[in-house]
């Protein structure tokens, strides 16, 4: 009889010690009329490193980021590069020396949605639940669990 109580209590204690990881996927979005319908993670990585500057149609990519402290940006950065934004600063210093600027930083997911919807070639990311008809999803990314 006592064991019946002990096991559920142990289970509750274990769960309390290890909070559940239920990350929501990130949706990579462009304008609805954009010719592409999907994108690979490798291609996305090159776009966000500014190594890929044009799409197949010859239009310039305009990658968008959230501020470096935003949890969504940090999830995106770890999922794409296995690095946090501050760990990429050396890379961006070198690119700056070669005249290349990092992705534009937008204030919020709503700002990304507005910019993407109205700018050809713009590409950004928002939480999946924020996606609305103003944009089209090219890729879903599942963030890594935090360390």
């Amino acid at each position: 009889m006592r064991l019946r109580l002990v096991y559920p209590m142990l289970l509750i204690l274990c769960l309390a010690g290890f909070p559940a990881w239920a990350a929501e996927p990130l949706a990579v979005v462009t304008a609805p009329d954009y010719p592409l319908s999907s994108l690979s993670l490798d291609d996305l990585k090159l776009i966000y490193l500014r190594k890929s500057q044009m799409d197949a149609e010859g239009k310039r990519w305009i990658p968008l980021n959230l501020p470096a402290t935003d949890p969504l940006r940090r999830d995106f950065s770890r999922a794409l590069f296995s690095l946090l934004p501050e760990e990429q600063e050396e890379y961006w210093n070198i690119q700056y020396f070669n005249g290349i600027s990092p992705p534009k930083v937008m204030a919020s997911e709503e700002a990304i949605l507005r910019f993407v919807a109205s700018t050809n070639g713009a590409i950004g990311y928002v939480r999946k639940q924020k996606v609305d008809p103003r944009v089209k999803v090219l890729l879903l990314i599942t963030p890594f669990p935090p360390n």
């Binding site: 501020p67 600063e89 961006w92 210093n93 700056y96 600027s101 990092p102 534009k104 930083v105 937008m106 204030a107 919020s108 700002a111 990304i112 507005r114 910019f115 109205s118 700018t119």
Partner: peptide, 18 residues
């Protein structure tokens, strides 16, 4: 010239970014 929206949060100057 491309028309860019103004929801970006970066200031005009950034150390190491010009």
């Amino acid at each position: 010239t491309s028309v860019l929206a103004t929801d970006d949060v970066e200031g005009a100057y950034r150390l190491g970014g010009g």
